[in-house]
Amino acid sequence: MPVLYFFVSRRTELGERLRNDGNVNVSYADPHNDRYVSISGQATVSEDRDTRHRLFNPMTKAWFPGGADDPDLELVEVHITHAEFWDIRESKPTQLFKLAAAAVSGERPTIGEHHEVLV
């Protein structure tokens, strides 16, 4: 099962919420290029010290100055169960035209690529 990792602060309530219910959705949007990703999965707070050290980098140090062993750092592990990706390559005027045509015809518009993955 594919996994995403995130570093978060223990000072936030995120770790506590994940311990109560780890069902999450992670999304990414690049509206300028009309690309969107939505990922669902089960998240847990990981105690894997080796993974913390492997993933820790100079950019992360800006948030966690104590390094990979900073007491404020928590490693969140998201096991992906479902993912969707949209890549819309038509121009904005073409998108609007297709949406208007669909509204008139009552049929769903076909705009760009859409892929769905169940893990």
Rank of each mutant, 00 (worst) to 15 (best):
Q95P: 07
R35F: 04
V8M: 01
A101Y: 13
S91I: 10
A29Q: 12
R19A: 11
R52S: 04
M1G: 14
G67P: 01
W63G: 10
V104L: 14
R17W: 11
T51V: 15
I80N: 03
T51D: 06
G22T: 00
M1N: 09
V3Y: 11
V117E: 12
A29E: 12
N33L: 07
D34M: 12
P109E: 06
N25L: 10
E113G: 10
M1T: 08
G22K: 08
E116M: 13
R17V: 00
R35H: 10
P71N: 11
F56C: 02
P31L: 05
F97K: 14
D50W: 00
E107D: 14
D72V: 11
F6I: 06
Y28S: 10
F6C: 05
I39S: 03
D30Q: 10
T94V: 12
D48T: 09
L96E: 14
S46C: 01
F64E: 01
R54C: 00
Q42V: 13
A101K: 15
H115Y: 07
G41W: 05
L4Y: 09
A43P: 05
H53T: 05
N20I: 00
S46W: 03
A103P: 01
L99N: 11
R19K: 12
I39V: 14
E74Q: 12
Y36N: 06
I39A: 03
I111K: 04
R54Y: 06
D69P: 01
R108N: 13
D50H: 09
S91G: 10
Y36K: 04
V26A: 10
D48Q: 03
A101M: 10
A103H: 13
R19G: 07
H79N: 03
S46A: 06
E90K: 03
N25S: 11
A101P: 08
L14C: 02
V76P: 00
P65F: 03
A100F: 07
G66M: 08
T51W: 04
V26Y: 12
S38P: 00
D72Q: 09
F64K: 03
A29W: 02
F85L: 14
N20W: 09
V3E: 09
T51Q: 14
T51M: 15
Y28M: 10
T51R: 15
P31D: 04
E116R: 08
Y28L: 06
A68G: 03
H115K: 14
E90C: 05
E74C: 09
H53L: 08
P93Q: 05
N25H: 09
E90F: 06
